[in-house]
Design a protein around this nucleic acid. Structure first.
Lengths: 125, 125
DNA sequence: GCAATGCTTCTACATTTGTAGTAGAGTCTC
DNA sequence: GAGACTCTACTACAAATGTAGAAGCATTGC
């Protein structure tokens, strides 16, 4: 029962972020959580959630009043993992350019690296 | 003249990989470089290259016979950088989950990490 | 020079994606 | 229980994407 490789679009991913952050959310909550400047119409969110449900990325859990609550089925980690792997392909599988960019853009700190080192050593055993 | 944030689709990115790898390539070369199992029609490659040209991601350099040669305009690095940044957004901007995945999947070695550490220290100055 | 071959240009079209309106059912408030 | 409000379900549609055929110009090998 291999997990089907679900491909999410940019907007779908964007909405997923809110679902992940909110844990369990109604369309309205997501809608309002989106910064007004880039907020699509309420029904647009709804359409996307429906599509996400069809794709198996979220599921309806329960109703509050007549509104459905949605919850993520796929984890942020697993979804991110796939994206990372795709990204790696771009660089021929080597993580080096990726790490280099993180450093160059100041996003990876020495602490992060130390932490990574520990993880690696721990994992080694 | 800020560089316009060009959004490439999956297939376009896939083709770009060959352009980057080959340096300067004709449609046919790219076509043949793609593993037969996932090779689209010759004209499909051509259409994509034309679109990439419109988007400014590649340019025609010269002709060999009556075939055009294409070359990347955007670098693999800059394109990758944008994708990485988008990916980071997914995790709220923190590189930690990203690094964790690289480690978990065995893609990041201790050497990579040491190397990163050096880069960081050098950069610090 | 001309036929075969290869390349380009144009055109086409199904799907997917982003975006949202409308109608009607459900709920809440007096 | 009637009106106001809210949510869902359904429908629509333009633009982007993946995919490729057809027609015709350019080269080349004779």
């Amino acid at each position: 029962m291999a997990k089907k490789h679900v491909r999410l679009t940019r907007l779908e991913l964007e909405i997923m972020r809110y679902v992940w952050d909110l844990g369990e959310a109604a369309v309205r909550e997501i809608h309002e959580a989106i910064p007004a400047s880039k907020r699509p119409a309420y029904t647009t969110i709804q359409t996307i959630l429906t599509r996400l449900e069809e794709k198996g990325a979220v599921k309806r859990t329960r109703k509050i009043g007549n509104a459905h609550l949605y919850q993520a089925v796929t984890t942020r980690q697993s979804t991110g993992a796939r994206l990372i792997d795709e990204l790696l392909d771009l660089f021929g599988g080597s993580p080096e350019p990726l790490v280099a960019h993180l450093i160059d853009s100041g996003k990876l700190t020495l602490e992060d690296v130390k932490h990574a080192e520990e993880l690696l050593k721990k994992r080694r055993k």
